[in-house]
Design a protein around this nucleic acid. Structure first.
Lengths: 214, 214
DNA sequence: TAGATTGTTAATCGATTAACAATC
DNA sequence: TAGATTGTTAATCGATTAACAATC
């Protein structure tokens, strides 16, 4: 299938469209124009139309967009119509927090297992799922058709674990470890570097203060 | 102070430079050229030099950059030389995970308090800090000079809580609630929308598979 | 049909990369 | 001094916005 490449800038905006359209749908609103959506979301109507048209014409001239249809289509583009088997590697605070994040299940992410190096945690139940030793991870991934691994381990172990996961045929890694993973193009990585995010916040606080001589 | 505006694209790259330079420093490396850094970080040397020169000349022609000096300077730009008083609003799994994230303290983020609506959690100790009722938040922020609030509450409450925080003079909000906050320009917001991030991952997994007819 | 609004092309703006003179 | 590498200007590339013809 030869699709023209969509820029990551566009992709990054899709989840936000999806969220707003979901809310409009829940409010019972049936149609919306790019101009109305523009007012609500504070992006230009032009950008909205360009973004959607990357994936084909979802609207109707003179009418606008059908909210529910557009919502469904964007969901499909994001792959939310498919089920994804997921494991969490690292049963610390963050791993546990993500395991308990109920909403993921609603979107087709099926929590299949949890792994940790620390023997003290083995057998402990988190969201009805026992924590398994790291040694079992590789076989588990292969046997249970795991698509996505969530990495919530310290950066020291992350590169090695990622290598194992790649070897077992993982499709995507949601990486919370503070290190850049080097994986083949066959494997997708999405980084969540929390401390980077916090630093951006302090930069902006500082900038604002120095611009205003506080 | 009249500084030319730095684009958020540049700011987003600073924490990554900071991380790599910290690692180089820890390895005892004293100098590095933009070309060497380019090889390690997989960005162009040109971009590195342009980025740094937004903030003035940190290098020396014919020599390169002093690792430690550059590291310190980027830290200052990011505001990491200052202390920031921080509270966490929402003592659920994610709030607790962030409270226990030790590394933040090392960077000058001082964990001062934690709040939750749920009476069952009040008085509970998380990292030696008792969970307080939401009603006490506003006064606490004012009395304890809180700069940053971490919002780890459901989206339904987030907008209202953000309003309160703004009223009490908060400087920045690190927002994990899945909603866009509408605050005055005096208050900086950094969003961490975890489900958006996960959707980007599934998009890329899907795209890769459909491009390769899997 | 007339009015509205998309889809799409063209214009603008901004960010990245290339090139090279300045200088250590 | 010669060689290396920055700082910075110019060229290119890509993303955003504006404009409008197509069309519902």
């Amino acid at each position: 299938m030869e699709n023209k490449e969509i820029s990551q800038a566009v992709i990054s905006r899709l989840p936000r469209y999806f969220r707003y359209l979901g809310e409009l749908k829940d409010e019972g609103i049936e149609r919306i124009s790019s101009q109305e959506l523009s007012d609500i979301m504070k992006v230009t109507a032009s950008q909205i139309r360009q973004d959607f048209n990357n994936f084909g014409g979802f609207g109707q001239q003179g009418y606008g967009y059908k909210v529910e249809y557009l919502y469904e289509e964007i969901g499909k583009i994001l792959g939310l119509d498919k089920k994804h088997n997921l494991i969490i590697v690292g049963a610390g605070n963050l791993g546990q927090a993500l395991a308990n994040y109920v909403n993921f299940e609603r979107r087709g992410f099926l929590f299949k297992g949890m792994f940790d190096q620390n023997p003290a945690l083995h057998g402990m139940k988190i969201r009805n799922m026992e924590v398994r030793p790291m040694e079992e991870m590789a076989a588990f991934v292969k046997e249970n058709d795991i698509d996505i691994a969530v990495l919530t381990i310290p950066k020291t172990g992350a590169v090695g674990v990622a290598e194992q996961l790649v070897k077992e045929g993982i499709k995507g890694i949601w990486n919370f470890a503070h290190v850049d993973l080097n994986v083949p193009k066959t494997v997708q990585v999405e980084n969540v570097h929390l401390s980077d995010s916090l630093m951006k916040l302090t930069y902006n606080i500082n900038r604002y203060e120095s611009e205003n001589d506080i």
